[in-house]
């Protein structure tokens, strides 16, 4: 469903940030993306959430060669991808409810349906009493859950998270990681960039390990009973 073949990315005239990256993501699979700082994790995620085009190689998403996808077609595809950014990227002037509702409003979902869906999801992520709270008044864990809720409200086929546990305490990190496992079990192909070796080990999903722009695919570990790669 999602495949990269000999993908390379360079910015301007600089050297390649990603080199000959090749991997497949099967529908409903879960992967961790690891690597040291500057290894190219963010660039790889950008390719996955269609914010960047490769300099070379073939990226196939949703059964389409991205080289053939025009700029005008990108919004339709992006609605099928949910992204949780490391810095949350919430709209600080909007309430938690409005932030989570934004993807539905963009898609033109009726107002009544938006209210039902958002309230239900906020309840599921434990934010039912924070509907009107604005991001600056939320804790790190609450912001992260708002960001996750916004990423999944449109029922994405591909869910990406960039260091989702980087800004929260270990207990919250543990809870959030299990939330992603639950989301993955609902059918979303999931890729989580993380530095947290212990959590990666605990969940046991296959790992896409980047080092100096080159990718290595490691099989799933002990804790995850059904690695999907």
């Amino acid at each position: 469903m999602f495949s990269f073949e000999n993908v390379g990315v360079r910015y301007g005239l600089g050297g390649e940030v990603l080199r000959d990256v090749t991997f497949d993501l099967q529908p409903g699979s879960m992967h961790f993306l690891t690597g040291s700082s500057g290894a190219g994790k963010t660039t790889l995620l950008k390719l996955l959430y269609l914010a960047h085009r490769p300099s070379r190689g073939v990226v196939n998403m949703f059964g389409q060669d991205m080289a053939d996808v025009t700029r005008a077609e990108l919004p339709r595809l992006r609605r099928r991808v949910g992204v949780v950014f490391q810095d949350f990227r919430l709209f600080d002037h909007l309430s938690a409810f409005e932030n989570i509702a934004m993807p539905l409003r963009i898609s033109g979902v009726p107002k009544a349906q938006i209210k039902t869906d958002v309230e239900e999801l906020m309840s599921w992520v434990g934010l039912e009493d924070r509907l009107k709270a604005k991001p600056p008044t939320l804790s790190g864990g609450e912001k992260q859950r708002v960001a996750i809720a916004r990423a999944i409200i449109n029922k994405p086929e591909l869910l990406l998270a960039d260091e989702p546990t980087g800004n929260v305490d270990p207990e919250m990190a543990h809870r959030l990681m299990h939330l992603f496992v639950e989301l993955n079990s609902l059918g979303a192909t999931t890729v989580i960039a993380s530095h947290d070796e212990a959590l990666v080990e605990e969940i046991g999903a296959p790992v896409l390990r980047l080092e100096k722009g080159e990718l290595e695919v490691l099989p799933g570990g002990k804790a995850r009973s059904e690695p999907s790669l």
């Binding site: 914010a51 005008a72 992006r78 609605r79 990227r89 709209f91 934004m102 963009i106 449109n154």
Partner: peptide, 16 residues
Amino acid sequence: RVSIEIMHQLGAEDSL
């Protein structure tokens, strides 16, 4: 710019 990037990422068209 960041808000626009987020909107693009959420699937908003340029017209929107």
